[in-house]
Amino acid sequence: MAAVVGIHAWPRPAVLACETLLVAVCYYAAGRLGLSQQLVADGAVVTPIWPPTGVAVTCLLLFGFRCVPGIAVGALLVVASLSTPGLSAAGIVLGNTVAPVCAFLMLRAVGFRVSLSRLRDGLALVFLGALTAMLISSGTGAGVLLLTDKLAPDDFWLVWLAWWVGDAMGVVLVTPLLLLLHRARRPPPSGRWAEAVGLALVVCVLVPMVTYSSVSALFLVYPLLVWAALRFQLAGGMPCALFASVVATVAARQETGSFGGLTDVETMMKLQAFNGTLGLTALLLSSVISEQLNTRRSVERACHELVEALQHLNAGGSGTTGAAGRDAR
Rank of each mutant, 00 (worst) to 15 (best):
I71F: 12
A14F: 15
W163E: 00
L33E: 02
D327S: 11
S115F: 04
R66Q: 14
F63W: 15
L123F: 13
M209K: 07
V307Y: 05
G91Y: 10
R183L: 01
D264K: 10
T256I: 01
S216H: 10
V93H: 01
A252P: 00
A30L: 04
R192F: 03
V4D: 04
G129V: 13
Q38I: 04
L161C: 05
G86I: 11
G34D: 07
A75Y: 12
A80C: 02
L161N: 03
G257V: 04
L147N: 00
I289D: 02
S258A: 15
V68M: 11
A248Q: 06
S190I: 02
L82V: 11
G317Y: 01
L135T: 15
L177M: 14
V247T: 14
E255C: 00
G166F: 01
A273G: 11
A196S: 14
V15Y: 09
F232L: 11
L234I: 12
W193M: 13
V46M: 09
C26M: 14
N294P: 01
A72W: 03
P52N: 13
E308H: 13
T211G: 10
F112M: 05
A152L: 12
E308P: 01
C102V: 15
R296P: 00
L179R: 03
Q254K: 05
V210W: 12
S117H: 09
T53D: 15
G70Y: 11
V210K: 03
L116Y: 04
E19F: 14
V114H: 04
T256Q: 03
V250L: 13
G166D: 02
L35E: 06
A273T: 09
P85V: 13
A162I: 07
S138K: 08
L278Y: 02
D154G: 15
L105W: 06
L173V: 10
S137F: 11
L116A: 06
L116G: 08
V172I: 15
A41Q: 06
L218Q: 06
S318Q: 08
A90G: 08
A328L: 14
A200Y: 02
L278D: 02
L158E: 01
S190R: 01
V68A: 14
A162M: 06
V207W: 02
G236K: 00
A89Q: 11
